[in-house]
Amino acid sequence: MASQWERLLQNLGEWQGSFTRLSPTGELQEDTPTVVSLEGLDNNHTIRQIIRRLPPGQPPDEKVLEYSSLGKSVLFFENGSFSQGSIQLAPFSEFGAELGLIDGNRRLRLVQIFNRDGQLDKVTLIREKLAGSDVPERPHLTLDQLIGEWQGEAVTIYPDYRSPDTYSTKLKVDYEESGNIIQQLSFGDRIFTSTARMNGNILRFEQGSLPVQVLFLPDGASCNCPLQVKTGQSFVLEVGWLLKPDLRQRMIRRYSDKGEWISLTLVTERKV
């Protein structure tokens, strides 16, 4: 099995794209062209990461990082997909995470930030392709594309590096005559059913103690998270990416009711 460092190396290269900052309800606030390069030094024992922001009409902004080890806040899957972020929800502190998916010459990353009161404050969608590649973006995600039944496989990895878990998944999304959307989610032998309403590009689940929304975004992306996070209630931060009409990936960063980061799951599912 590849080490966490070897999995990081799947991200080497020059990634050209943009950082798109959105409001909590999905309105575009800022779109900045970017180039993010990751280069292996010393026989790939050190990584140099250069982040260049290229705001139109302004001087470029560049940040250079070098590192030879990984912190406790990040985990990588075999294909290089990853998540990094807060390991503990703390009172009066900013909280959030980045979730990054890879598909060939494309990367899609999503950053979800909650303010000091635990309210969803910023969403940043990062769409990238490797330099020299010409891979088109996917269309803006719609609810109709998700309606139906999806069957998949999930891999869950853990911050304490225990053995990963692998299990089957099923996601069923249906319309009701009332206008409600019914979602049935199966992880192994556990089944969860929830009801939502669609409002513009937002799917809202209101019945839980922590209301949750799914934002439908460009490039086939979706952002799934609570509107507010707090201790005493477990929650997840999730990104979805519709790669093809019948193929989707989701990454789920899970927190316990004590606000502790406990696992990271990658789901690859196909429409049946």
Rank of each mutant, 00 (worst) to 15 (best):
P91G: 01
S93N: 13
E94N: 12
F95A: 00
G96N: 09
G96F: 01
G96T: 03
A97R: 15
E98Y: 09
L99I: 15
L99Y: 13
L99R: 11
G100C: 15
G100W: 12
L101W: 07
I102N: 14
I102D: 13
D103W: 05
D103E: 13
D103A: 11
D103I: 00
D103R: 02
G104T: 11
N105P: 09
N105M: 01
R106M: 07
R106C: 01
R107C: 09
R107I: 01
R107L: 07
R107A: 13
R107N: 14
R109S: 14
L110T: 04
L110K: 08
V111F: 10
V111H: 10
Q112M: 13
Q112V: 02
F114A: 01
N115V: 00
N115M: 05
N115P: 00
R116T: 15
D117G: 05
G118W: 04
Q119N: 13
Q119Y: 08
Q119K: 10
L120M: 11
D121M: 05
D121P: 03
D121G: 03
K122C: 10
V123L: 11
V123C: 04
T124Q: 15
L125F: 06
L125T: 10
I126W: 12
I126Y: 08
I126R: 06
K129Q: 15
L130G: 08
L130Q: 14
L130N: 08
L130E: 06
L130H: 09
A131Y: 01
A131P: 00
A131H: 11
G132I: 03
G132H: 05
G132A: 07
S133R: 04
D134S: 14
D134C: 08
D134Y: 03
V135I: 12
P136F: 02
E137T: 09
E137P: 04
E137A: 14
R138D: 12
P139L: 02
P139Q: 07
H140T: 13
H140W: 02
D144V: 00
Q145Y: 03
Q145N: 10
Q145D: 10
L146R: 03
L146D: 05
G148D: 08
G148T: 03
E149R: 13
E149D: 09
W150F: 06
W150Y: 06
W150E: 11
Q151V: 09
Q151C: 05
G152T: 05
G152Y: 08
G152W: 12
E153G: 03
A154M: 10
V155T: 15
V155C: 13
T156Q: 15
T156L: 02
T156K: 11
I157S: 05
I157Y: 07
I157M: 06
Y158N: 03
Y158F: 15
Y158M: 05
Y158I: 08
Y158E: 08
Y158K: 00
P159S: 06
P159V: 09
D160Y: 04
Y161D: 14
Y161I: 01
R162H: 10
S163D: 15
P164I: 04
P164S: 10
P164L: 07
D165K: 03
D165T: 12
D165F: 07
T166G: 10
T169V: 08
K170C: 14
L171V: 10
L171S: 02
K172F: 01
V173S: 06
V173P: 15
D174V: 09
D174L: 09
D174Y: 03
Y175F: 13
Y175S: 10
Y175Q: 12
E176I: 02
E176A: 07
